[in-house]
Design a protein around this nucleic acid. Structure first.
Lengths: 218, 218
DNA sequence: TTCTATTTTTAGATTAGTCTAAATTTATTA
DNA sequence: TAATAAATTTAGACTAATCTAAAAATAGAA
């Protein structure tokens, strides 16, 4: 069995490979989990000797099938716990990330599955991210970045890229939550900011950076 | 903040002091948490330097107010999680101990209290053990050991001493669970075993060892 | 293609928690 | 009360995970 630390490395490698579509570099991992490159280098050798990663010195690292399975399961646990915290314990969506980081390391295959059942097999977490099933299959999101919506088009907010507390609090403040209907009124070329009609009522303008972090369904 | 390991030492010290009504010895702790006496000795000095324990070499150890508070809170968390696992996720009472050992180390004051609220402030865990409130106060159990029941007396099973999986499975097998009504039919002096009438129906005989692990309310 | 900058790895040290073996202190008992 | 047994602590070593500094390898630019 792996330590929590080792598990966190696998998750980081998964996340980076997913994002960049290539082997994760030592530096990318070290900045993802805030440790020195030296520590990462050490750990990569350990994870490889345990059959979790394919690693060639100076060439970056990818997950083996086994490593991928563990990483996916961590994500499953993380997102299910987030649903539990929000739906059952009434936490807000900006409070649950750090807690789920702890809970995802609880060891018990039975627990995850019972939790999944208790929550009635949710497909998405409170941030709109898909929850993989017990076999590691994700429900594919039919969603696009808000930036890809043309003027006058309407979409429903179904997910966010970032889940930092500051970003989520900002969204709450602007009256944006999952399920909110958005109509693009105007796109400003100058800085990429966008003027929106929210739920057919209020008008707000959001920056390009915010825009890129919002997923909508047409 | 303390590590999980340090927390486990505090819990062990709490448990032993409670049971024996005196300072916990190095050996008692080492057998409670299955580590060498040398490791315990080391740890006791560390915990004392952190203000968690009163420790005098060769004289055993007791908890400071702060240490006591942490230990009590761990017990609170442990028992609340056990209620959650049994009531909400349908685990059986013999399956939850090890999982609760992991869950009790999750750090978040908010989480415990929300869990408590979600479970509607249970007073006892699935083994009949009292759950301390947020201030560390236990509901006093008005219960006696089954061994103290005289012949012909009737009691309701309200708690168990041990919560090892083997013991609890044995009880299930014998048709004994919390709430079961027991009538003492005969006490055998020879080996301390006892013949019981269970729920006014079946007759069983249990050993003295089992007897000592059962609490009843008259 | 060669030199320089960047990235990555190695070397060596540190901390928490553990161990065994040896030394020391306390308890028991003759 | 002196000798022996038991309990406890200290010494020294090990592993996992981390760090900084130095060395080595790779990538990029002239």
């Amino acid at each position: 069995m792996l330590s929590s630390t080792e598990e966190n490395y696998l998750k980081a490698i998964y996340k980076i490979s997913e994002r960049d579509n290539k082997a994760a570099s030592t530096n990318a991992i070290s900045s993802e989990i805030s440790t020195s490159a030296a520590s990462v280098s050490d750990m990569l050798q350990r994870l490889s000797s345990k059959g979790m990663t394919h690693y060639e010195k100076y060439k970056g690292v990818t997950l083996t099938e086994q490593g991928n399975k563990i990483a996916t399961n961590l994500i499953r646990k993380h997102r299910l716990w987030e649903v539990f915290l929000v739906e059952k314990l009434n936490f807000t969506w900006d409070e649950v990330h750090d807690l789920a980081e702890q809970l995802e390391h609880i060891q018990s295959p039975d627990l995850v599955n019972r939790l999944d059942q208790f929550l009635e097999h949710p497909k998405f977490d409170p941030h709109g991210d898909p929850i993989p099933d017990a076999d590691g299959n994700f429900t594919h999101r039919r969603q696009i970045e808000l930036t890809n919506l043309a003027t006058e088009e309407i979409g429903t907010l179904v997910g966010v890229q970032e889940d930092s507390s500051t970003f989520l609090k900002y969204l709450d403040r602007m009256g944006l939550s999952l399920g909110t209907e958005l109509k693009v009124l105007e796109k400003f070329e100058f800085d990429g900011s966008v003027k929106l009609l929210v739920n057919n009522k209020e008008q707000i303008t959001i920056s390009n950076k915010v825009c890129k972090n919002l997923f909508v369904k047409k």
